[in-house]
Simulated assay, not measured.
Amino acid sequence: MDPTRAPVGADDRPALSELRLSSFKSHRRAVLPLSPFTVFAGPSGSGKTSALQAYTALARLGGGERVGTAFPDASGCVPERARPDPQGRRGFRIGCTVDGPVGSVRLDVAVQAEPELRVVGERLTSGGQILLSTALRDPARRTVQAAWHTAGSVPVTRAPLPDDRLATALLPLRVAGKTVGQRLVLAAAEQVVVALRSVFACDPRPERMRVPVPLGAGRLHGGCGNLAEVLLRTREECGTRHAALIAASRAGCAGAVEDLAAQELTDGTVRAVLDRGALGITPVGRLGDGELRYLALALVLLTGPGVLDMEPVAEVLPALQAMTVLADGFDRCLDRRQVRELLSLAVRMGERGHVRLVGAVQDRAPAEGVAGVSVVDLGV
């Protein structure tokens, strides 16, 4: 069976339906709708990259990472015209909506970037009901006061939580799930965390794919520099998907493509090669930047969490998770034909319900010609 043409059933996999940039870099009160296949379009400076940075940061927070890791340049995320309060504090606010079995769940986060980086406020809501809220009560303490819905003998439970992590990601460790209210809180938090953690951010770097690489764990990095190593693994493990990758390569690369393989060298490294049929073997290092980025993005769309360097929620079955590929500069170095081929491949893979895509493009025209792809124009 062609892996890009599998039937679709009822799909309750948690997924983001909206990204909110209330006050983040150049964005003010921005509400960006997200479909299964969304591209942010607009000229340079319209905020495409910053929108993907906010999404990536939320994903890291959802994975339990500290706020300093999620926002390595937190001061640069503060809107340029934001003025400090009398205590010298400045920050930013972002959020998202996640649809899934619980319905629509909203997460909103307020981050203080200066003078100290910390999460100063968070709210998790569903159906108009506040399930979790946090607030900074004492700036001298490295905690926030959290309150979550209980609906038992005590309607709300209050406790201090660290101010450097997302409280929503910590709830499973703090909530027992004994009451109906607690179970609702846990279900909503799990829905958000599953959607946020099921993210693979990638920006293929052609210069890294041109040189042989040592053998490793066989998991594709975000820059795709270890493409050859991963090809060695995927070619052996799944012939059907590898055949789909070859078909995609023919559509996006110039000249004949009979096979795409990894060639082990005498020094223990491996390089990727194209079998050109009668023309012989060509190292992929000889390809143009656009062809290399095309190959890497096609491989990402045709694989999954087991091959990509990402950590989805281990406690939830893979069939209940939808991987979201975040691709900044999705059309960089690509011609319109290649962009259309990749978007069409994403849509075909998405028919299985396992893959979503959010990318940033300079030229919206190729995306507008692909059924199923939504264009969010940030230049308007």
Score class of each variant (00 low, 15 high):
239 G>I: 08
227 L>K: 01
326 L>D: 05
289 D>T: 05
234 T>I: 15
238 C>N: 14
317 L>I: 00
291 E>A: 02
303 T>C: 09
245 L>G: 00
230 V>T: 07
232 L>K: 04
240 T>V: 15
256 A>D: 11
330 F>W: 07
279 L>K: 02
251 A>C: 05
254 A>H: 09
221 H>A: 13
257 V>W: 07
222 G>C: 09
248 A>P: 12
344 S>D: 15
262 A>N: 07
273 V>M: 02
310 M>D: 02
282 T>Q: 13
237 E>P: 06
294 Y>M: 12
265 L>P: 12
250 R>K: 10
292 L>D: 01
235 R>E: 15
244 A>C: 11
220 L>T: 01
241 R>M: 15
335 D>E: 09
250 R>C: 14
238 C>T: 07
301 L>N: 02
285 G>D: 02
290 G>S: 02
229 E>Y: 04
296 A>L: 08
247 A>M: 11
279 L>A: 15
254 A>D: 14
225 G>Y: 07
258 E>A: 10
313 V>G: 05
342 L>E: 06
332 R>A: 14
259 D>I: 03
315 E>R: 11
298 A>Y: 05
304 G>W: 04
317 L>K: 10
319 A>L: 09
270 V>G: 01
247 A>L: 14
323 M>T: 13
311 E>T: 14
298 A>C: 13
234 T>S: 11
237 E>W: 05
329 G>M: 08
310 M>C: 15
235 R>M: 13
331 D>G: 02
226 N>A: 05
335 D>Q: 06
293 R>I: 01
304 G>P: 09
327 A>Q: 02
248 A>S: 15
274 L>V: 11
242 H>F: 12
224 C>H: 03
234 T>H: 03
308 L>M: 08
266 T>P: 15
262 A>T: 08
333 C>Q: 10
317 L>W: 08
339 V>W: 01
220 L>Y: 00
228 A>G: 09
231 L>T: 07
239 G>F: 07
256 A>G: 04
333 C>N: 04
285 G>P: 09
247 A>V: 08
342 L>G: 03
304 G>L: 11
299 L>T: 01
344 S>N: 09
320 L>E: 12
342 L>Y: 05
325 V>A: 08
296 A>T: 07
302 L>N: 02
264 E>C: 05
313 V>I: 03
238 C>H: 06
316 V>R: 09
298 A>M: 10
263 Q>R: 13
249 S>M: 10
261 A>K: 04
231 L>P: 09
286 R>P: 02
229 E>S: 09
315 E>Q: 12
312 P>F: 10
318 P>G: 01
307 V>K: 01
228 A>T: 10
223 G>P: 03
239 G>V: 13
296 A>Y: 06
227 L>N: 01
287 L>W: 10
252 G>H: 07
221 H>I: 07
234 T>E: 13
336 R>D: 15
302 L>E: 00
281 I>P: 11
303 T>P: 04
273 V>L: 00
245 L>M: 12
230 V>I: 15
326 L>T: 04
276 R>T: 03
231 L>M: 12
220 L>K: 00
293 R>Y: 06
